[in-house]
Nucleic acid binder design. Structure first.
Length: 579
RNA sequence: GCGCCCGUAGCUCAGUUGGAUAGAGCACCAGAUUCCUAAUCUGGGGGCCAGAGGUUCGAAUCCUCUCGGGCGCGCCA
């Protein structure tokens, strides 16, 4: 509906050539907003105040000139100039009725924008290391990323979701050796389990299911022979070396890959149950096997962005705002994680994605600049990469804060959380606050207060509407939708006006939430819709004897049902017919 | 020490890119149903928007500083 006001204002401004110069610098649409208070009309524009300074004229005077040029029409009842120079628009009932009809006509598509070709967006999120099950922190990333993806799609952007699988490096060796040791335990070889290994019970599960075809059992004596004392990192290192020695590189790799794939598949399964799916599972290993890292480094070298110092190869990160230059190839010849990260983001651009969004933990903020620098160094724009940082989730059970450490195995999994509070409540709770706000997730509260969770409040509104139509059927009545649409003028109660107004905001809320990567706007909006509906429900009966009024009211609550269902769908929350 | 984020009602948090009188939920108090689901509704109390300056018609929002909290500053991944 905002477009009605935008159009009116633009038409009026076009008739004021003396303002042409000053208006060029601002977006007319950005000056228009919903009013907080109904006494200020439905929409207000501060355009006159924005223009006043540059034009050197009193804002109220400009406002008066603009209002005088507004074209006539049946969309607006009246326009007022208020306060320091606001232009307040009171839209006509007919304008709201039109919008209601649009909701019914478009149904599940209401609030969605037309598909566009550009920019193609690659949204990367979760990307948890495949060394154990997802925990509750990852759940926040999953819910947030999935919802942002839905919002971007709803606003027309072509978006693909990607999970970067960190399946290279030392942690994979630690995973492999952890599984190997657990497997040996099943064969009767038992040594004290290394503290630096992965100690979760899931390692035992993998070990007992693994295909070790032909691998010999070794004795505990041979395992412990020559192990260093003390430093647990050295112990695990020695065990890895021993595993490679005993099993051969290929044999060890076989265990490693099976373990990795087992965990990765479990993560994929977990997320799918949570309603979170990906277009791509991108393997870090594949960067090496396809020489993408070398290719990227070659590009950097060619552009003069690399230099040698102390036997290592450095990237000139300081040229791109980083506080120090960064090593990409170590003295020992190994490439750093940063090198593969540059190559990975370069590859994303090379695959044809125009805009890259990474959703990362807040602890990654330090490396945003340098990855952006890597992109810039290779000829792309630094701001092709947008990073949304997620603050941490602190998990509580009552007053006790749970520690989350994958290696220790003492953590609460996303699975457990979903089982306890349900997918709907979890998805909703995770995105109900801003990503840069810490999230305290108290499992006891989430369980004990689950009936007070706003998600049920919203779902209940949807179910209640469905129930009204069941009730209609029980009374052997039928809705005449055509008659309802013709009689929307009968909807004159304040609760009806309030609900219509709130419903009509939906497309604007979707756009706002998408543009700001801020799902919580949608969450709060849906609560408002539900509140307006419940208030209406309590104030008036829908199934009344007057069939014209009845049909009109049924049109209104049908529109409410559509908006709630559409919004919940974007949040990945179900819209039940009964509760 | 340097950098990023945060500080709003007793608690948990919103606050529409700088707008008009600061908003919800929970908790507390008082009410509402012969009728479509009471998982509901109505009303009430509750605030130095951490603090101090600045920018301007106008600041919770932007800038500077101070205080308090979280996180990060590897030839780790």
């Amino acid at each position: 509906m905002k477009s009605i006001v935008t159009q009116l204002l633009q038409d009026a401004l076009a008739n004021l050539p003396e303002l042409a110069d000053v208006i060029a610098g601002i977006s007319v649409e950005a000056t228009i907003e919903r009013t907080r208070d109904a006494s200020h009309g439905d929409f207000a524009s501060n355009v006159a105040m924005r223009l006043a300074k540059a034009a050197g004229v009193n804002p109220r005077e400009i406002a008066a000139n603009i209002v005088a040029q507004l074209p006539d029409g049946d969309q607006v009842d009246k326009v007022e100039i208020a306060g320091p120079g606001f232009i307040n628009f009171y839209l006509s009932a007919a304008a709201f009725h039109n919008e209601l009809r649009t909701m019914l006509d478009q149904g599940g598509c209401y609030g969605r924008q037309e598909a566009r070709k550009k920019p193609r967006i690659l949204l990367e999120f979760v990307s948890a290391n495949p060394t154990g099950p997802l925990h509750v922190g990852h759940g926040r990333h999953a819910a947030f990323g999935a919802t942002v993806g839905n919002l971007l799609e709803a606003t027309g952007y072509p978006v693909e979701r990607e999970y970067y699988v960190n399946d290279a490096g030392r942690q994979m060796d630690i995973l492999g050796v952890s599984v190997w040791l657990r497997w040996l335990e099943t064969q009767g070889t038992k040594i004290p389990f290394p503290e630096a290994g992965y100690r979760g019970a899931y390692i035992c599960d993998i070990a007992s299911a693994i295909d070790t075809g032909g691998i010999a059992v070794v004795s505990a004596e041979r395992l412990t022979d020559g192990l260093p004392d003390g430093d647990q990192e050295l112990v695990i290192e020695a065990l890895i070396a021993k595993a490679k020695d005993v099993l051969g590189a290929d044999g060890f790799d076989q265990i490693r890959q099976q373990s990795l794939e087992s965990i990765r598949a479990d993560i994929e399964d977990d997320l799918a149950e949570f309603g979170v799916t990906f277009n791509h599972w991108y393997s870090e290993q594949s960067l090496t096997t396809s020489n993408r890292i070398d290719d990227a480094l070659a590009v950097l070298k060619e552009r003069g962005m690399l230099y040698e110092k102390d036997g290592a190869t450095w990237f000139r990160a300081t040229d791109f705002g980083d506080e120090k230059d960064r090593v990409v190839v170590r003295e020992n010849g190994n490439k750093t994680y940063f090198a593969s990260d540059i190559a990975y983001h370069f590859d994303k651009r090379e695959r044809g994605f125009d805009h890259l969004i990474d959703i990362l933990g807040a602890d990654h903020h330090g490396y945003v600049t340098r990855v952006q620098g890597g992109l810039a160094a290779m000829g792309y724009a630094a701001d092709d990469l947008e990073v949304e940082l997620m603050q941490f989730v602190a998990l509580y059970r009552g007053n006790e804060r749970m520690q989350m450490s994958t290696r220790s195995g003492e953590f609460d999994t996303l699975r457990k959380l979903r089982a306890e509070v349900g997918n709907d409540a979890a998805r909703f709770f995770y995105v109900s606050r801003s990503n840069d706000q810490h999230l305290d997730f108290d499992l006891d509260v989430a369980k004990s207060e689950s009936n007070d969770n706003p998600v049920y409040y919203i779902q209940y509104a949807h179910a209640r509407i469905a129930s009204v139509f069941r009730q209609l059927e029980e009374r052997s009545l039928k809705q005449d939708a055509v008659k309802g649409r013709e009689n929307l003028a009968l909807l004159t109660e304040p609760q009806e006006k309030a609900l219509m107004t709130t419903l009509s905001r939906y497309p604007e809320v979707i756009e706002l939430a998408a543009n700001n990567r801020a799902p919580q706007h949608l969450v709060h909006y849906l609560r408002d819709v539900a509140n307006d509906f419940h208030t209406y429900y309590n104030a008036h009966a829908f199934i009344v004897d007057d069939d014209k009024l009845r049909d009109a009211r049924l049109v209104l609550i049908t529109a409410a049902k559509i908006v709630i269902a559409n919004g919940l769908s974007i949040l990945g929350v179900s819209a039940p017919e009964t509760m």
